[in-house]
C-alpha cells in the first residue's frame, strides 16, 4: 500500500503521457504483487483439502480444471483477508465435509481403532497374567539362572555350530 501511494506521488507531477503509462503499468504490477497471495500460501491450504472430483488426491496436486478453480477460489479468499480456518469452513459449507482431509467427527474416527487396540492389549495382558501365574507358584529356579541364561545360550549355540561344522 505504501508503495502504491509513493508511486502515485511520483507519477502525478509527470506530464508526459508515456511516462504516465509506464508508471501506471508499474503501479498495476506492484498492486498484483502486493495483494495476490503466492502459490505457496494457496498450496498450504490446498494440501489439506480434497476435491470430490478427484477423490483421494489432495487439492494442491490435482490437475483437473475443477481443482484449478478451487485453488483460484482459495487465492481470492486469501486476498480478501480470510483466515485458513474461514476458508476451510467455506469449503465445508459449499462442498460438504468430505473436502477435509479428516472426518469432522474426530472422536468417532479415532475412538474405534483406539478401543480395538486397547481391547487387544487387554487380552494380551490378561493372557500373560494367566500364563505366568502357575509359574510363580511352581518354582523360583528359572529366575535364578535367568541371568546366566543368555551367556549359556551363547556358548551352547557356538558349540552347536562347532558340532555342525565337523
Amino acid at each position: 500500500m505504501l508503495n502504491r501511494a509513493k508511486l502515485r506521488n511520483y507519477a502525478l507531477p509527470l506530464a508526459l503521457l508515456a511516462a504516465l503509462a509506464v508508471s501506471l503499468l508499474f503501479v498495476m504490477t506492484a498492486l498484483a504483487q502486493d495483494d495476490m497471495p503466492t502459490d505457496d500460501e494457496v498450496n498450504k491450504i490446498a494440501k489439506d483439502l480434497y476435491c470430490p472430483v478427484c477423490e483421494s488426491t489432495p487439492l494442491d496436486v490435482c490437475p483437473t480444471e475443477a481443482c484449478r478453480q478451487w485453488r483460484e477460489l482459495i487465492r481470492q479468499q486469501l486476498a480478501e483477508g480470510k483466515s485458513e480456518e474461514e476458508i476451510k469452513q467455506y469449503f465445508v459449507t459449499y462442498y460438504g465435509a468430505r473436502v477435509l482431509s479428516e472426518p469432522p467427527n474426530r472422536l468417532a474416527s479415532y475412538l474405534v481403532p483406539a478401543l480395538a487396540f486397547l481391547a487387544g492389549a487387554f487380552l494380551l495382558f490378561r493372557g500373560f497374567r494367566m500364563w505366568l501365574k502357575p509359574l510363580a507358584v511352581e518354582s523360583a529356579v528359572p529366575t535364578e539362572d535367568a541371568e546366566a541364561f543368555p551367556q549359556d545360550e551363547y556358548i551352547r549355540r557356538m558349540e552347536e555350530e562347532l558340532k555342525k561344522r565337523k
Binding site: 476435491c51 470430490p52 472430483v53 475443477a66 478453480q69 478451487w70 483460484e72 477460489l73 481470492q76 462442498y95
Partner: peptide
C-alpha cells in the same frame, strides 16, 4: 415446466 440447474462442485465466479 420448471428447469433447475444444479451446479455440482463448482466455484461461483466460474
Amino acid at each position: 415446466v420448471v428447469f433447475l440447474g444444479v451446479d455440482y462442485v463448482d466455484t461461483e465466479p466460474q
